[in-house]
Simulated assay, not measured.
Amino acid sequence: MASKIEVKDLLEAGVHFGHLTRKWNPNMAPYIYMERNGIHVINLYKTVAKLEEANEALKKIASSGRKILFVATKKQAKDIVADKVSKVNMPYITERWPGGMLTNFVTIRKAVKKMASIDRMKKDGTFNTLSKKERLQVDRLRAKLEKNLGSIADMTRLPGAIFIVDTMREHIAVKEAQKLNIPIFAMVDTNSDPRDIDYAIPSNDDAGKSIEIILEEVTKAVAEGLEERKSEKSNGKEEEKEAPKAENAPKKGTKADDLTKIEGIGPKAAEALVESGIVSFSDLAKADTEDIKSVLTEASSTLAHLDPTSWPKQAKMAADGEWDELKEWQDKVKGGVE
């Protein structure tokens, strides 16, 4: 486990600098330490606590095999995000947010596949049969797609979570993630509304040094989750060799009770289900949809609007070890809703 971030490090990076007091959002009051020279100062002790909470959740999502989409289109954050996130092999958006990126994911995937088809044309020689003008047009289209969507080429399904730098600027991304019940992690400054965010990290989202130190910690947690998943997979292979007869059982290298593998279930929903006694895919497969809905409603008002209709169906496939079929089904639907 990586060493915890110190308040002193955040202070040196300027994470505590907020916006002018007249531009503040009153909902950020719990995270503000004081006001100095007309500028709000963020309470870094709360930043550390929230960062640790977010990192723990991100680590869980990464270890479950789900992708985490990072979004930062502001100039001072673009290069930092691209550099840090590419190292942990996660998708990111640093150019303009494509409208419908999440809510109309099928169309976005078609655009990504267009890039692959152009690459195939160049390999099989079809590209050379085009006229000079057509080749130029295809090259321009390929370059445009690469610039806007190249970094999400490997994201074949909706992400397990989304991490945002500056929720005011990326408000469309926030709305889309909310609509599909995708957990939102974000750096929130004193002018932002933390109520829209599942895991808000109070911090300066304008300074490069501040963005860099937060992203460094976040990507470390993601890397730990990926490493954990890798070691579990290798352990699973060893266990399968020892017990070759258990062909129909779920693979022991994966967490059989990791309910976030079901499309539509985030970390908070999974926690609520586990607390209610639904701790495995088999339990969820047998559960009544209305009972699941009641559990979610009782747990939190933010979970009450989730639609668990397809969860038992997905859980049945997971319990039977039909992971390929489950992935194929999840790729065809939006947010687990048929």
Rank of each mutant, 00 (worst) to 15 (best):
G100Y: 06
D119H: 10
E328L: 10
I152N: 02
E325P: 00
N104H: 09
E95Y: 08
A221M: 11
V174H: 11
M34A: 15
L303T: 03
S310Q: 13
A72L: 00
E328P: 00
P26I: 09
R36K: 15
K133W: 04
S203G: 01
L69A: 06
E338C: 00
K144I: 09
I61H: 02
G160W: 06
G150Y: 07
T219V: 14
V188I: 08
S282I: 03
K332P: 01
S151G: 05
G208H: 03
A243Y: 14
Y199M: 05
R120H: 03
F127P: 01
S282N: 08
F163R: 06
K261T: 09
E242M: 08
K87H: 07
R140S: 09
G100C: 06
K286G: 05
I197A: 13
L69E: 01
T107D: 13
A315C: 09
N27S: 12
K255N: 14
A299L: 03
H19I: 01
P244L: 09
V138M: 14
T297K: 15
I201A: 02
K268T: 13
G99R: 11
G236H: 05
E176A: 12
G208T: 13
L141C: 03
E146F: 09
T167A: 10
E290F: 06
A256W: 10
G335H: 07
V274M: 09
I214Y: 06
D307Q: 10
A223S: 14
S203R: 01
K8Q: 14
K75H: 11
A319L: 03
K245P: 00
L273P: 12
P267E: 07
A77V: 00
Q330C: 02
P267T: 08
M90L: 08
A246F: 10
K144P: 00
I262F: 05
S294F: 01
F105G: 03
I265R: 05
D139T: 12
S210F: 02
D324W: 04
A287R: 07
V337M: 11
E227S: 14
I184W: 04
A272W: 08
S63A: 15
I118E: 05
Y199K: 02
K78W: 00
E232R: 15
E53A: 14
V337G: 06
P183A: 10
M187C: 03
A72N: 02
G38I: 04
P183K: 12
G99E: 14
E95C: 01
W323N: 09
A173L: 10
K252V: 07
R109F: 01
A161S: 08
N235F: 08
E275M: 07
I42E: 00
M115C: 09
K50L: 07
A256P: 02
I265N: 06
I80L: 10
W24S: 14
A29Q: 12
I108Y: 10
T297E: 13
I108Q: 09
S117K: 13
M28Y: 03
K255Q: 13
D79A: 14
I292A: 05
I32L: 09
A319H: 11
A82P: 04
K132F: 11
G125E: 06
E247W: 03
L259P: 07
T156L: 10
A319P: 07
I93S: 05
H171C: 10
S63K: 10
A249Q: 12
